[in-house]
Simulated scan of single mutants.
Amino acid sequence: MRRYGPAALLLLTGAAVLRITLFGDLYLRYVQAGLRPYLIVSGAALVLLGLITPVLKSHPHHPHHGSRTAWLLTLPALALLLFPPPALGSYSAAREAAQRAARGVGTFPALPAGDPLDLTVAEFSSRAVYDSGRSLKGRTVRLTGFVTRDDDGTWYVTRLVVSCCAADATTGKAEIRGADADAPPTDTWVTVTGTWRPEGAPGSDEAWPPVLDAEKVTRVQQPADPYEKP
C-alpha cells in the first residue's frame, strides 16, 4: 500500500486546487483572478499524475519506492481540500504595515464629480498622504475594508493590496474617527462613509495613516475578492 502514498498526495493536492478554482471564488484568497486558468491546468495535471502514478509504479521497469512521508504530506493537502484557510486579515495587516515603502509626493489625476466617492483604501491612502494637490479636500468618500485596531483603541478600515498572490500583500488603511457607534470587532468587514481630515505635510510621518472623519459605518459581507490591486 505504501506505493500509493505519492499518488494520494498528488490526487488530494490536485483536487484541492480544482475545488477552489472551479467551484467558487476561494482561489481569490490566495492569488489574483488572472491566474485562475493556470491553477485549473495545474490542478488537472496533478490529478492526472495521481491517477497514472500507481500504474507506472506497477510496471516491471518502474520499481516503486513507497515512503511513509508521502502519507504525512497528504494531511496539508486534505486540510486545504476540506477546510480552506480564510483570507489574510488583521494579523497580516499589522505585520506588513511596518514595511510601507516611501513614495514621492506629487499631483494625482482629477477625481470624478459626485459624492460620496467610492475609492479603494489604497487609493484613498495614496492621495491622502502623497497628493500635493489635496484632491480629497472637501470630498465625501466611501471605503470598504476590514477592521484593525491599536492597543489604545484606535481603529482603522484596512485592506490588503496584492500584486500577484497573498505572499506579496502590502497594507493600505485609514484611521476612523467620529463614528457614533463603537468600532465593530477586529476583522469585521465594514463600509465607512466620511471626509478626509488632513494632518501633516504631504509625505510626512504625521500624514500616515490618513484620517477619515466618519459619518456612517455599516457592516458588510466580505467581498468575493478580499484584496485590492495596486
Rank of each mutant, 00 (worst) to 15 (best):
70 A>N: 07
189 W>E: 11
222 Q>L: 00
105 V>S: 06
173 K>L: 12
8 A>V: 14
100 R>C: 06
206 E>G: 13
195 T>P: 15
41 V>H: 07
167 A>R: 01
6 P>A: 12
180 D>S: 15
39 L>R: 14
118 D>W: 11
159 R>H: 09
105 V>K: 05
203 G>C: 03
199 E>I: 08
219 R>H: 03
162 V>A: 00
60 P>G: 09
218 T>Q: 15
79 A>M: 03
227 Y>D: 00
115 D>A: 15
70 A>I: 03
19 R>W: 09
20 I>H: 02
3 R>E: 05
175 E>W: 15
226 P>G: 03
42 S>H: 08
171 T>Y: 11
42 S>Y: 08
14 G>K: 13
135 S>N: 14
161 V>L: 07
227 Y>L: 14
188 T>H: 02
138 G>A: 02
176 I>C: 04
227 Y>F: 13
91 Y>F: 04
162 V>L: 01
19 R>A: 06
30 Y>F: 07
2 R>V: 07
227 Y>G: 15
184 P>R: 11
208 W>S: 12
12 L>R: 04
10 L>H: 10
159 R>M: 04
21 T>I: 06
65 H>F: 09
218 T>H: 12
38 Y>K: 12
1 M>W: 13
76 P>G: 08
74 T>Y: 00
125 S>L: 05
208 W>P: 07
62 H>D: 13
21 T>A: 02
50 G>C: 02
225 D>I: 09
222 Q>C: 01
81 L>P: 09
225 D>E: 06
12 L>I: 01
88 L>Q: 05
182 D>L: 08
151 D>G: 05
191 T>F: 06
60 P>K: 10
87 A>G: 07
97 A>N: 03
80 L>W: 05
201 A>Y: 03
112 P>R: 01
160 L>A: 04
166 A>F: 03
2 R>N: 11
160 L>M: 04
119 L>D: 07
50 G>M: 07
95 R>M: 11
213 D>Y: 12
184 P>C: 05
136 L>D: 00
156 Y>E: 11
80 L>R: 15
175 E>Y: 14
79 A>T: 01
155 W>F: 11
9 L>R: 08
125 S>W: 02
88 L>E: 02
47 V>K: 07
103 R>H: 11
215 E>N: 15
145 G>M: 06
165 C>N: 10
29 R>Q: 15
117 L>Y: 07
66 G>R: 10
